[in-house]
Structure formats: structure tokens, C-alpha cells
Amino acid sequence: MNRATLDLWVGFFVAIGLAALLFLALKVGNLASSNVGETYQLQAEFDNIGGLKIRAPVKSAGVVVGRVADIRFDPESYKAAVSMKIDARYKFPRDTILTINTSGILGEQYVGFEVGGDTEMLKNGDTVKKTQSAVVLEKLISQFMFNKAQDESK
């Protein structure tokens, strides 16, 4: 095997290897959609975040506008402090309400933005006041059973 053929094969090997990485990064992974644009940070406190996880999507009207960056427990308010990175292209009014929703009945949880009507917009580092906790399925069911029982005893 002479030198030139060897170099050619190895060059081909490295090229398709890198092409595979590119395919993984752009088509399989999220390199194309995230990490590219500028983001700004928002904070919010929830009574209960349910099963929300870091890197869960933040959606407004069903479109992904950002991601959950960090989740901590605030020992003073006994609430969950969630910080999110929002795409800098999108601005939201100050009275936007944040809810924790579930996609489908058992799907993954995400933060939903319900846009308000304020003329002032949220800025980097702002904290959103109005939040709505996750719907915990067990609570919902037990509530339903309780009501049913009350109805019957009447």
C-alpha cells in the first residue's frame, strides 16, 4: 500500500467521521436551534414545580422561546426558584403569567408564558411575580374523589 493511497483513505475516514459529528450536532442535537442566539435571564418562584427539570423548554403559545437554566430551593420563602434563559429576540410584558404545564397527560413538563397586556417589557435579571404551580396529578385525583364523596353524602 503506497503512501498516497493510505493518506487518501485516512483523509476519507476523518472526513466522514467529522461529517457524522456535524450530522449529530445539527440534525440530531440542538446546536442549530439553541446556544447560537443571545439570551437574557428571568427568575420566577413557584410553590411547586412538580417534575420540572433543568433544560426543560420554556414555551409561549406552544413555541419554544427559552430553556430552564437552574432550579433551586429558596430557604426563606420555601419556594422553588427557577431561572430561565430566554431568546433575546422575544420580549414579554411585565404582567406575563408563568405556569408549569405538561405536554400530554404523562409527557415532560415545561414552563408556559401567558402573555399579559403591560406596555413595559421584562428585562434581563427580572423576577416574574405571577406564577402558577404545576398541576400534581395525585392531588387532582384526590380532590375529585373527595368532591364526589361529598356529593354522594348530601
Binding site: L21, L24, A25, K27, V28, G29, N30, L31, N35, R55
Partner: peptide, 14 residues
Amino acid sequence: WSQMQASVDFREDI
């Protein structure tokens, strides 16, 4: 493809 892209993170996973 879109569900895949939404859940596979370049740094974390790939």
C-alpha cells in the same frame, strides 16, 4: 426529527 432535536443537547449528550 423535531422531538429528537428538542431533547438531545449538543454539549450534554453528544
